[in-house]
Structure formats: C-alpha cells, structure tokens
Amino acid sequence: MLRRDFLAIAGAALAAGAMPKALAHTRDATTAAAQTGSGHPFDIVAFRAARRHVRTAMGNIACVEHGRGDAALFLHGFPLSSFQWRGAIERLSPYRRCIAPDFLGLGETEVAEGEGVAPNDQVAMLIALLDALGVPAVDVVASDSGGAVAQLLLVRHPQRVRSLLLANCDTETDYPVQALQPVISLAKEGKFVDRWLAPWHADKTLARSAYGIGGLCYVDPAHPTDDAIDAYLAPLLSSPRRKALANAYAIALEPNPLAGVEHGLRQRRAPVRIVWGMADDIFSPKAADYLHRTVGNSRGVRELAGRKLFWPEELPDVIAEEARLLWGVG
C-alpha cells in the first residue's frame, strides 16, 4: 500500500455478582509498555493442528477447539481470524471448552456457493455450528466486528448465550464507524484486499509499522507477529474467490445490522462485561459507556489506558482474568 493511501485512511480513522451501575467503571493502569502475559500461547503449528472443519449448510467452518466442560465461543475481528484468540484460549481451556470459529469470508472457513458473509449470515452460521457441535449454550467472548455479531446473537438467541465479554466493537449508535468508510469504498471497487492486505502480507515490517495494521490497531511493536500476519492474510489472498469474499465482508459492514437492537439488549439478562482499550482510534470510548447503559445486565466497564483495537491479542491475561471473573471460576 502506498504511504499516502494509509495516511488518508488514518486521517479518516482519527476523524461475578451483579455490580451496581453507579460503581461499575474501573480504570486500568495498563499502559503501552505493559507485558502481554506469562503464559505460552499456541504457536501457529499447534493452532493449525487443533483446527478442524465443521460441515454446515453455509460451508465448512474452520474451528479450533481446546479444553473441556461448558463451552465458550470466541468471535474475532476483521480482517483477522480465530488465531486472534490463541493466548486467551491457552489460558481459559482449563475452565471451558473453548470454541473459536473463523467467520464466513475470513480465515480458513470454506464458504458455500451463494452464501453471504454479512453479520446476519454470521449469526446463522454460529447457530448452525453450535447445533453441529451439540452445544446448547455458550459464554461468548467477542471484539471488533465479532462484537456486533455477538450482540445480534444475544438478542435473537438469548437461550444460547450464558454471558458476554465484549472488547472494543461496533454499537448501534456508531455504525459503521467513520474509519471504515475508505475500506468499504475500496472494497466496492474490488480493490481493498489488493491495495491494503496484499502489501501488508508481502512486507511484514510494513504491516507492523505506523503505516500498517500494527500502527493502527496495536500498541506492542511486536504485533502482529509474522505468524499472525500469515494466519490472517494469506487465506484471503489465496484465490480470486477468497479476495472477493473478503471484499464482500467489508462491504457488508456498511448497512447497520444493529439498527433497532437496543430494545432487545435492554431486555436480556445474561451478564455482560465490557473491557475497552481507551486509545482506540476506530471505536470511540463513548461506545463502552453506551453499551454499559444499554445492556440489561451490565457487570461494568474496565478501561485499559493506552490500548488500541486489537488489545485482546496483546493482553490475553486480561481476557482470561475478566472471563474467569464473569464465569465465576478459578
């Protein structure tokens, strides 16, 4: 990607008991220099070995499972894949059967001909996946566009969601975020994957630079790792059809699937915990407050100082800590 392209884009980006809501906000001392955790997350070889494909009407859904017991469902962001959650899964597998699918159009999932990749399609896919796996209900952990899907899942299928841990993500009142407009415009021209993702995959130093996904969405200069860049981007560049599906995923983010969802969120009683990176240039910190006020059973907001959109990949210990508290385990 040309430097001027990224600068234009970056400029658009800048344009477990109930907790009383009055006491719900906590501000974390986490800074850009914070460590990412003491565990040993899956490397890409182990992660691939744990992956299988689950056949559904929507396609063969790439899915990693690790652990035993009640199920937890991990929903990733764009243009990422389930590999985003490798550190959290490593830490939480002693407490849950961790299930991390790749969304339709992303990762290693094989989309059936004629199937869509919009948020509503993702919800239908998740229900089909859970049915195929024999899982009646899950604790959901979600971020970015996966957070929008998680909200739809909670509202439309409340019996399937025991709890919800949300990181920086879309909300009904701020959708699509302004930062996505250049992405959507390029995707409509069929150019997003080639103009943005291909250069990042070809030059991983560029991807981690101020002019890449690293500078826009991460704080730790080691992220995304080479393995992560390969895991996220290589599948999307592997064929003309995969490029078209990735572009379609971006285009499908333009209509607001969360329109009218607020009433349903207020009615739902599953506990919801919100953890927000406060230096995110894409999703406003005000969105965390909105979610806290809106969901029917908020367990409060934890604010992470100095953290950007994809902090869950950099700070798996925070995800694990918050999930254990929400689930009442460990």
Rank of each mutant, 00 (worst) to 15 (best):
246 A>K: 01
249 Y>I: 12
232 Y>L: 07
238 S>R: 10
266 R>W: 04
232 Y>D: 14
251 I>D: 03
263 H>I: 04
235 P>F: 04
233 L>D: 05
252 A>L: 09
238 S>T: 10
233 L>V: 10
255 P>K: 01
266 R>D: 10
234 A>Y: 02
248 A>Q: 14
264 G>Q: 08
234 A>T: 12
238 S>C: 08
252 A>K: 10
257 P>A: 07
268 R>D: 14
264 G>I: 07
249 Y>G: 09
241 R>D: 14
243 K>G: 09
253 L>S: 06
245 L>V: 03
265 L>D: 10
254 E>N: 07
242 R>H: 11
245 L>F: 06
253 L>C: 12
253 L>T: 09
244 A>K: 02
243 K>Q: 15
243 K>A: 11
260 G>Q: 01
255 P>Y: 01
252 A>D: 11
252 A>F: 02
262 E>Y: 00
249 Y>T: 15
255 P>T: 01
255 P>Q: 01
251 I>N: 10
251 I>V: 15
251 I>T: 12
263 H>G: 12
264 G>A: 06
262 E>S: 14
247 N>E: 12
249 Y>R: 14
247 N>K: 02
240 P>R: 10
233 L>G: 06
251 I>Y: 04
241 R>V: 15
253 L>M: 13
239 S>N: 10
257 P>H: 06
250 A>D: 00
232 Y>K: 04
265 L>R: 02
242 R>D: 06
268 R>G: 09
263 H>V: 08
232 Y>R: 08
245 L>C: 08
269 R>F: 07
246 A>W: 00
237 L>F: 14
239 S>M: 09
268 R>T: 13
247 N>T: 03
237 L>E: 15
233 L>Q: 05
235 P>K: 09
244 A>N: 08
250 A>G: 04
243 K>W: 02
251 I>C: 12
257 P>L: 03
246 A>S: 12
261 V>L: 11
267 Q>H: 11
254 E>K: 05
236 L>M: 14
266 R>Q: 15
268 R>H: 14
265 L>S: 06
265 L>P: 06
260 G>N: 03
242 R>P: 11
259 A>I: 01
255 P>C: 03
245 L>K: 04
238 S>K: 10
253 L>Q: 13
267 Q>D: 11
233 L>W: 04
237 L>C: 11
269 R>Q: 15
263 H>R: 12
243 K>D: 04
268 R>A: 15
246 A>V: 00
234 A>C: 04
235 P>G: 06
246 A>H: 02
268 R>K: 13
259 A>P: 02
237 L>T: 11
254 E>Q: 12
267 Q>A: 15
241 R>C: 09
240 P>G: 08
254 E>G: 02
262 E>K: 12
239 S>G: 05
239 S>L: 09
232 Y>V: 05
255 P>G: 03
256 N>E: 07
269 R>S: 15
254 E>R: 06
267 Q>F: 05
236 L>Y: 00
268 R>S: 13
254 E>D: 14
243 K>C: 10
252 A>Y: 07
257 P>W: 01
245 L>I: 03
257 P>D: 07
267 Q>S: 13
242 R>C: 08
242 R>N: 13
259 A>D: 11
267 Q>T: 07
